[in-house]
Structures are given as structure tokens and as C-alpha cells.
Design a protein around this nucleic acid. Sequence first.
DNA 1: ACTTAGCACTCGGCCGAGGGGAGTGCTAAT
DNA 2: ATTAGCACTCCCCTCGGCCGAGTGCTAAGT
Lengths: 341, 341
Amino acid sequence: MGQLEGRRRQILRVVIDDYIVTAEPVGSEAARQRHGLEISSATVRNEMAALEELGYLHQPHHSAGRVPTDQGYRVYVDSMVAEEQVSPSERLRIRRTLAATEFDQAVEQAARALAVVTECASVVASPKLPQQVVRHLHLIPLTLRRAMAVIMTDAEVFEGKTVEFEQPVSAEECDRLSQEISRRIAGRPLSDLTDRVLATVIGEAAHYQRVLDQIGRLLRERIQRSPARVHTEGQANILKQPEFQDARRAQPVLSVLEQGEAAAELLGDDAGEERGVRVTIGAENRRDEMKDCAVVAATYYVADRPTGVLGIVGPTRMRYGRVISLVRFLADSLGDTLEQF
Amino acid sequence: MGQLEGRRRQILRVVIDDYIVTAEPVGSEAARQRHGLEISSATVRNEMAALEELGYLHQPHHSAGRVPTDQGYRVYVDSMVAEEQVSPSERLRIRRTLAATEFDQAVEQAARALAVVTECASVVASPKLPQQVVRHLHLIPLTLRRAMAVIMTDAEVFEGKTVEFEQPVSAEECDRLSQEISRRIAGRPLSDLTDRVLATVIGEAAHYQRVLDQIGRLLRERIQRSPARVHTEGQANILKQPEFQDARRAQPVLSVLEQGEAAAELLGDDAGEERGVRVTIGAENRRDEMKDCAVVAATYYVADRPTGVLGIVGPTRMRYGRVISLVRFLADSLGDTLEQF
DNA sequence: ACTTAGCACTCGGCCGAGGGGAGTGCTAAT
DNA sequence: ATTAGCACTCCCCTCGGCCGAGTGCTAAGT
């Protein structure tokens, strides 16, 4: 696809810049005036016609101004958007918010902060389980024959099914057992903990075999269903956007956001190996409910391991420069915060 | 507020029944026909005018049909709505869903189920902290000088701030300490655990004083801020309602739902001592963003102690009969589910 | 005294026409 | 290659008129 050369490029940029602010189709004269172009509106018109031909702009109807297409936004994001620095005061506010949280609320707070500053809906998919590293496992005795397993990883604490003992186990034994197991599995990623591994973990404690089996099963189930905790905030922000004034247009978008897994997928929770901010525009999204939305997402890292993914969902007409910076900043901040524990 | 006598009562009921289905102002003729009244439309008109005078109905404009007022819905809910039984197949589906969950997901699943069956937004405010009973506390060693406290109550597991030791503490010591503390505080409600109580809990272990202080502080903070975990589901359902087609009308409602505490308050998380289902209609709600909404809520009980509150938020025009039954059923089911752990 | 038929009236919603305005595409001149 | 000029297109808003649903009132009926 033809490289866009100087002036034409500039005009595309101007149109998009303008549209992002006004949410109205941009006419040739408006574009010229508002951005101080030194050429006549007729020339602008010619260029616009060419840009439409090339698929970067679209005309809602004959004799209306132009509106960017997904493809238009694509080249805008890839090569023309100026990243707006996050202001120091904002940086500070966000850092403070995160610093004040407890471990289990960091993810939630990050989502909230992101929603507030971007004025979009935010999604934070907390750690993909298989990659989390086990830190500690503890069996909390419920009765003499039952206990609940609580597992702490580097990124979250979760509790799971209760496990049953074959014979009564005292609280002290529970502790010993927990210690034993913890010591051996700590530091391994969850995905390592297959049955085989667990089986060899405690060779001697044969009569705890059943417990281990159950813990193994519990872990496996968790990992497979991988119900990556997803926090979504600021869904109501979507309704503030002019393109979503009609509830019927907004409804499918919110529905997808409400399904945690679907939302996480939008952020690219699988392909999320690459560093940096990913932008997915309109029809590029897998879900076609999202064809009028753009997703800006980044993977966050704890101790240099990709740990989770976070981002925002808004109309394709968004302030990419600002949003991209913010998403990057929040990914970094959340990573740092989690790292401190 | 004169008692409504026979026929007038019936007409109010008919109007509301009709409006709930059609979402259109109900005219005298329509009311008469669709519900087989044996009187003429003129009589119906007279009664309607009277009902309007009394404040039960409202006329959007001159020569339009009638629409129920909050007060109209109030008497409808209090004395005329026929509670629709939850169908056995639905009961079964819901029970199954809940039975299949793990402890930490029960609340979430309940919210989801409620949203699906009522087609409204659902809110489940998990346990009010002060009343939760401590089951176990465990210190997970992070380093030799830091540990994270994980507390399990009868209704949830939560982790809290890290605590710092004055001198190195081994993993085994951590366990002993956890045991010690757990044994003494287990069975008490969280609200009991003031500093004084904690101080006397372990008299001898003076050099752990600092740890206890920290745990005390942690608990107190948790209790005071009482960030009752709130799960909201089905927000997008609001957008399906004809009264919320305009995003500007829906936006404030969704905003409130997104703020967990605000949503929980709507359900009456404080006054929630009384058994049974509570219905709050339109302007009765504390938040005036909710003036077009009704809230149907119930407290759920674990082992006969009020534990949390759950309910739905929808337009005032809702199928109260069905929704009330469903909310009651889900409160019971969730209570049962939590009880099993 | 209540009910009902009849009727004039009111109001929202739905055209269809018409004017204004923004913006285009084309052509011809620079 | 650029630009001024111009006719044209289409949206949007408003206005008037019409239709229909529904009312309130009055007068007659039971």
C-alpha cells in the first residue's frame, strides 16, 4: 500500500486530529482553517478525495465532510500520533493511589485509575495463571478431615476447593504439611505443577498422597479454566461518548466488557508477549461487537516476567496520544507495585 | 391516603400490569379491553382521574394515557402483586450453578445468575466485615522480616497488608505464631478484635507485640473502611430497557452501580436486619440518580447470621412478582451455598 | 347516585415541503 | 499543479397540517 507522502499525510493527520476533537465530519475548509494550512480548500478537497480513494477516509454521505476509517486511524496510530507525555501531577496521583493499596486491591485500583484518567472503560486482566509463580500454599483446617487450600502466587492470593483427608489431621500437622509442600513448590510457575511433579514432591509422605492428588487437581482445574481475574471499570464512560448516545449501539459493547474472559481476549491476553502498547482498531478486534471501538492495551511485567495485561476500550475516535502514554504508564506502575510484595 | 376500595384498586392494578408489559401509557379503553373489565371506558376514565388525584397515576401530558407513579408502584408492590413462583427448572439451574462454584466465586456466580434470570443489573454485596467470624489467620512469610496476613472468615478469604517483624522470624515460627493467634481469635466476629482484645490474646509473647499491633491495625482499617466486596453484573441489561434508550438517562445509573459502596447502600446494607425482600421504588432511593429505578433486595444469612445483601436494580417498571421471588430464592441459595463451607 | 354514551378538544407523532447551510466535485483560469 | 468560481447535493431544522389516541365534560339513562 502506497506510502503516504508529505502533504497528503499531513492532511490525513489534520482531519483525524480535528475529528477526534469535534466528533463531526471534517470539511475541507474547516480543516484548512483550523490547522492553518497554506493551501486552498480546493486542493484540500482533491487530497481528501484521494485519501478516500485510498481507503483512509470515508464520506458518510455525498457532500458531507470526511471521517477517518479504521485504516486511517491505523496509519495515524502507527506513524503520526505524537505521544502526549503524562503530566507529572497525574503521574504522582496515580503512583500515590497504587502505593496506598494492599496487595489484593492493586489490580482493582489500577483499573479504576485508568478509567478515570482516560475517560474510557478500562480492563485489567490479572495474571495469567499458568505463568504465576507459587510463593506459598497453606492448608487452613476447617474440620479434622477437611481443609481449604489457599495459594499465594507472586501476583495474587486465591483460595480453592476444600480438600479431604483420609484420616484426621490436626492443626499442627496441617501446618507441617503446608510447610512441606510450600517449600517444595515455591518458586515454580503454576504450569509446572503437573501431577508428576507433585507426585515426586513428597515421596516419603505417602499417606498424604490423597491430599496431594486433590491439590494437584485443584491447581489443574484452576489453570485450565484459567479464570483470569478481570476487573473492568468505567463502563459508564462509554455512554458519555457521542457515538454511543444510542443505547442500542452501546449495549453490545458493554455486554462484551461484562464478560471477563471476552474482555481479556480483546486486550490480547494470549499474544501478549511483545513489550509495548498494542492498539487494535475497529474491525481489527476479534469481536465484531467492537467494530466501533479501539482497544489500547499493554502487558505488565513483574520481575521481568509477563504477568497480566491491562488496557482501555473506547470509541475509535479517541485521543490516542494521551491514552497510549497512560496505558504504558499504568502498566509500568502496576508492575512496580506488584513487585514490591 | 384513603384505602383503595375494590374497583378502583382493580383498575390501578390493571393499569400497572399493562404498563409493565407495554411500557406505554395506558388508556381507558386499552385497560378495559385488555383485561376484560365489565365497565365502560368512561367509568374507567373517571376512576383513573381519581387515581391520578390521589397520586397513584400520572399523565405525561394532557390527553395521554396514564403511567404509574412511585406511589402507585408502592401500593402495587405492598398489596397487589402476585408473587410468581420460580419455576422448578430455573430453581434447578440456579442451584446447580451455585453448587459447582468454589468458595471464593459463589458470590460472583450468584450475581451472574441473578442478572441473567431477572434481566436487570444485579448487585451482591458480600459480607459486612464487622459481622464476619474469624476462622483462621495465617502469616505467609515473604522474607525473614516480612509476612503477609491472610485471614479467612466464614464468608471470604482476604489478604491484607504485609506486617514487619522486629527480628528475623523463620517459617516455622511464623506457623507457630499463626497457630497461636488463630486459636485465640477463631470464632470471634471481626468487630470484636479491637486492640484491647488483641493485646490480651497473647500476653506471654511480648516480643511479638509489634506484630500483633500491626495485625490489629490491619483489621481495624479493613473494618472501618469496610470495603464490602461488591459484585455487580448485568449492567448492560439496563440498556435494553426502553426507558433507558437514551444514554444520558442510563449513564448516571450505571455510574452509581459501578461504585461498589454506593450500589451496596442502595440495597440497604445497613438496615438489612429484617428478613424478607425489600423493595425500594424510584425516589425512595437515597440516590436521586436512581429516581427512575427500583431496587429489590434481600439479606442473606449464613448460619442464621445476616451476612450480606443481594438484589437487583431495574426500571421502576419491572415484573415485581417474578423479581421478588427470584431475589428471595437467590438469597436463600447463596446462604445455603456459603454455609456448606 | 352512579354509570354510560356522545362529543369536542388536546396533544404527540408523523408526514412532506421548504429554506438554509455546509460541503462537495467539476471546470476553467492562473 | 493549484485555485477560484459555481452549480449541485444532501442533511437538518422548522413549520403546517393531518391523523389517531385519549381525555374531560355534559347530558341522558338506569
